[in-house]
Design a protein around this nucleic acid. Structure first.
Lengths: 245, 245, 245, 245
DNA sequence: GATGAATGAGGATTCATTCAT
DNA sequence: CATGAATGAATCCTCATTCAT
């Protein structure tokens, strides 16, 4: 009787494809790691699983990354690197009014970050940051600060041009950030803490939040006259109870 | 289970202080567990560490709680879900208008949960729920559901009394929950994702969000012409740009 | 909220009655221990369970027995002590033929040992003897030897009186013992290795085995003449396929 | 799972010989496991001990077998149940009379299982089955059932060919199994319950039991007048008093 | 460079045993 | 004497990491 049926090496559970190109490996490992870290958290993600998803063996993973922690750091670094420089330039050239600019900013952020896997990084930092102070500082420096600076510039521009009423920028910044953060959570933690929020339409949500922000900042977005404070308007608002999360 | 225990040295003399404080133990363990779960997450918290912080041995922990998961559930019951009964009663007896009621609800929640370490539980669930389905289900059942029910009751009351305009409650509920969730995140992930947000005044934030909610629900508190009923804003709302996050 | 519902001390699971008389305790503990050791084996029987079944606390158990192992030994000693002396006397006075004597012996054994909880000891020794060499020797000395001696005396008597044909007593003894051992196994391990054997009627089984033995030993038990080797006969045999295990 | 692994010293230099012998491992582990399970029982056998005896580390054991229970199952498959297929085929091709077939079956079983360490498994199940219901079910399904089926086929064949008289197979099966079970016990509990039985000649014992069985089933081998068919005993039966246990 | 077999520290949980009350 | 709260050694199993091939 053959021994082959007497044992089931655990390895066999994970199907491995091994026809990738050498050069691509680190990138594939990072992509696989991002997926898994976001989905299961750092601690619960097994190195072997990452390797398997990237189509390489466990050993190879440690060939490219000294440790699981280094892999995590690389994942974060890889996905949050200087997108802001390009955005800053983009916004320097923007010539619409500041309300449009803010709306464009939020939508662009959603399209290029929020809607992509990179948004997982934010969720990841939120969950694991306290265990990775070094990374937290890095993230703070590479993402938070530039992001806040960008938003601050937009708001300041609005004030300078008389489009927004004067405000405490240190607080106002969070009025922009908060909805984005919540949106990410709704996307990644859906099914548990924000159950049902899965149905949420991000674009609608952003539009609504933006309208609220602008109202608060004194920039009425309504195109026409209206007796109600939130009358007419092109943006959302048609059915507030539905679009609001 | 093993026979090897039979051959263990019979009289291994061990000198230990044994305080008998059965009544106090569960509370001490729950407090230690809350601290550690919030600080390090569920998976990363070692049972022995909880016991040590409570000043007892590993074994004692399992004397009071069948498992680490049960310990977690007990922490949740003690700090969150166990309070819904009392809150429900409190709100059944409430006799102000529904706007005040909603404001009271949010503030009370902040004072009793949000501002305490217990709020860390919510943050924690967001990261670990997917790895502990049973805990996620428990949390959903013991916290999310009752919380939503409570809020729903308040909103329904407002509608029934003509204070709020009719709305889709399934969505409206999230308009109340979302800001609270963000507040918790701002508190617990502060220093990383929302650095500087530490300075945030929660009460002001809540008031602002409440005002927005009420406006959306037809209970206009300050938007200008007083055509809407119950005008003249209940909450304190001196400086909107500052309180809005 | 009261803490009382937050934890479930495991102890509470076991209901304890505490109205026994002091003097009876060791006996009750031994009885409880016998039950549990037989049912679950030595290793799988928990000291606390024994105490609970005896209606005392865990501490009390260790007051009477130095350790679980000592308890086990006491259980064995308690249940196998010199019954053989009395039987030896009984059989010295027996005045029937040797076939009847053997039958009487087997039936008496069943009534006084096999059918009682004491038979569990045999099963116990069979399972645990190798882990308790000391006890095994004790059991060998107190049970096996006297038992074999008793049987040997009966067989020798039969030979001496010309009732049995000459035989190798060292082997013949096992012809008597084997069925009894199997009977005990059928009783205690039923449902697993000898599944379905639960329905077995011990008296019938003994009668059948006895008849076989006697036939083999040259003592035809048949009362009347018969052409078939196992004809007529008072004892079993009516439906051999059914009574034979 | 725990984060504490992150802070484990990265380069704890450990010098170990690592032999790569994937093909040999399962067999070595199974052999070690069989030894230990038989020697100490399932519960009392520590996984690490099995690994050590096989010359590997704890971890390696779990590389090949998902759990201790799976290891046990593999041991049973390797040594017992895995052989039924081959046996069934062997017996399908058997062309002697059914009495010979039954005798061959019992002897083959003894040679390939009973006389080997694997027979300890049967003894072991008797003690531990009640504590490991899943194992008991497995054993029942993989060993007891196929074994009974095999025997039943032989008996049915005898009846169909007119060699055995009609009988209640559900009972007759135990007439075959019981002596084998006792033989195993005699072997494994020798020195305790059935001391001296070590000297027992299994082949003789089996022959005797077989003769008894056949007599009962109407295939009389030696009882005197040759009125029954197939008389003239196939097996060796020179000295009945000696071979009978 | 890749591989994947092997390693072993680490953590949850059990339960015999102790000892303060 | 009894009690039962407290203890901690023991055991199964996981998975990051190493290293012979």
């Amino acid at each position: 009787m053959s021994l082959s049926k007497l044992f089931r090496p655990k390895n066999a559970v994970i199907a491995v494809k091994r026809e990738r190109r050498k050069e691509a490996r680190p990138g594939e490992l990072l992509a696989a790691a991002l997926d898994l870290f976001v989905e299961k958290g750092f601690a619960a993600t097994r190195a072997e699983e990452v390797a398997a998803r990237a189509g390489v063996s466990k050993g190879t993973l440690f060939l490219y990354f000294q440790s699981k922690e280094e892999l995590f750091k690389a994942v974060v670094r890889e996905n949050i690197s200087g997108r802001f420089k390009e955005w800053n330039e983009e916004f320097s050239a923007f010539d619409g009014n500041s309300a449009e600019m803010l709306g464009y900013c939020m939508n662009v952020w959603w399209d290029r970050v929020g809607a992509t896997k990179a948004s997982g990084i934010t969720k990841l930092m939120m969950s694991e940051a306290s265990n990775f102070p070094e990374l937290a500082a890095f993230y703070q420096h590479e993402v938070i600060q530039p992001g806040q600076t960008l938003i601050r510039r937009i708001l300041q521009r609005g004030i300078d041009r008389g489009e927004f009423k004067p405000m405490d920028l240190d607080y106002a910044i969070y009025s922009v950030i908060a909805p984005m953060v919540f949106l990410i959570l709704a996307k990644h933690s859906a099914g548990v803490c924000i159950q049902n929020a899965v149905d949420l339409d991000p674009k609608k949500y952003i539009a609504t939040q933006l309208a609220n922000l602008l109202t608060g900042m004194g920039t009425n977005t309504n195109t026409g006259a209206g007796t109600s404070p939130h009358a007419g308007g092109t943006p959302p608002e048609q059915d507030q109870t539905k679009t609001r999360i």
